Simulated assay, not measured.
Amino acid sequence: MSVTLSKIRALNAVAEAGSYAAAARQLRVSQPAVSRQVRDLETEYAVRLFDRKNGQLKPTPLCTELCDIAERMAEAERNAERLLSRNNTLVNGRLSIGLGNSMPGMALIAAFHKKHPGVEISVETGSFENIISAVITREVDVGVLPDVPGDGRFRRELLIRQSVVAIVHPDHPATEIGHLTCRSLMQAPLIFRTKGSSTQRVVDRAFRSSDLMPTPLLTLDTRDAVYEAVVNGMGIGFMWRNGTGRNDIVQRVPVQEMQRAYEEVAFALTSEKSLLLEAFFMAVKNFRNGKLANPITQV
């Protein structure tokens, strides 16, 4: 035998109710079951847990200490239940989201939060590879990325379609031309993303399709770093057309070999099912169809 949760619950119920019968009603079990659990503890550890006074069972000092532990255990159980249920409630639930690009994912999250303000949202940002890995390992509940593999691992819901564009400083001649090609880009200082970026995957494909092997001036690990390098006139970078909500001096210029529109989707493991996920995927549909506030112009 050992000290089990059921025995501690029985002990605490008897201490509160003052009798085995009342404790049994409180726990919704039989009176013999309650008395047996208390007596098992007394027999195994050779202790006295209750004294009978005026027809009532009164806890001994030792029992009172055990009841304090029982209360802490009960609170831990309640906390565990709250934690587990938070993944399946829209009242005070918790949803973790992985974003490769700040937009359109952040606009979607804002729309979801407006509809379900009781849900606590945590956001993890990172490269394409990092977000895919986070969804697979369940570090996040759902991801938002472009060009997600269409295999059986993931449930996917289309958010928008968009292409990769070049981003250039307004003083660059490309802003007057209005378009670029991979061959013309070979003459410019280029700013690339590190491997693992969905943007860089598209850029690499485009140059390979033209039998070109550019050497970038800079290789940076975040979209924001690329953006700032372009703002400071260091060269031409690349990003998803709707990859940021910033609207400053940087110009978006289409590249002939990069005009294919890729699907940006919300995705989760096929095996993952919850009320929160269903609500999030419904928000994606509504966002795409313009039923929620949507500042993104689809490509």
Rank of each mutant, 00 (worst) to 15 (best):
P216L: 13
T219L: 01
E65W: 00
F238L: 06
E257F: 04
S184D: 13
L66H: 10
P59F: 02
L180D: 11
A293D: 15
T297Q: 12
A46M: 09
R39M: 10
I69F: 09
T199H: 02
I131Y: 01
F280Q: 07
A23H: 08
R28F: 03
E278Q: 11
Y20K: 08
Q200M: 14
R155S: 15
S209R: 12
S184Y: 11
N92R: 08
V165Y: 13
P117N: 05
A15Y: 02
G290L: 02
P32Q: 11
T194M: 05
Q187E: 15
M103N: 15
D171G: 02
V203Y: 00
P189N: 04
R246V: 13
E75F: 03
E263H: 08
P214V: 01
P32T: 11
A33K: 09
L99K: 09
G152Y: 03
F280K: 10
I8N: 05
A279G: 06
G245L: 03
H179T: 14
A76N: 13
R260I: 13
N242G: 10
A74E: 15
L292V: 08
L27E: 05
K53P: 03
R72S: 07
A76P: 03
Q162R: 10
I97S: 06
S210K: 04
E264F: 00
N92A: 08
E77K: 13
G150A: 07
L145G: 03
P295K: 04
P295M: 05
L11M: 08
I121D: 04
V91C: 02
P149H: 01
G18A: 06
L27V: 11
D147R: 12
I160H: 07
V250K: 11
S274Y: 07
N232I: 04
L275Y: 05
N101G: 02
D141L: 10
V284Y: 01
I131K: 01
L220K: 00
I177A: 09
D51F: 08
E257A: 07
R201M: 12
V144C: 07
A13W: 02
R52W: 01
R28G: 07
A174L: 12
L95M: 08
F154G: 07
S35C: 07
P59E: 07
D211W: 11
V148I: 10
F192Q: 10
R28M: 09
V284T: 06
R193V: 03
T219K: 04
E157F: 00
T194S: 09
A283L: 05
H116P: 06
R94M: 04
I160V: 15
N242F: 02
I97G: 10
N130A: 13
L276P: 13
S35G: 10
D221M: 13
L11K: 11
V202H: 06
L99F: 13
D224K: 12
M239N: 09
N242V: 09
L57C: 04
G143K: 14
V123Y: 08
V119S: 06
S85L: 07
V250F: 12
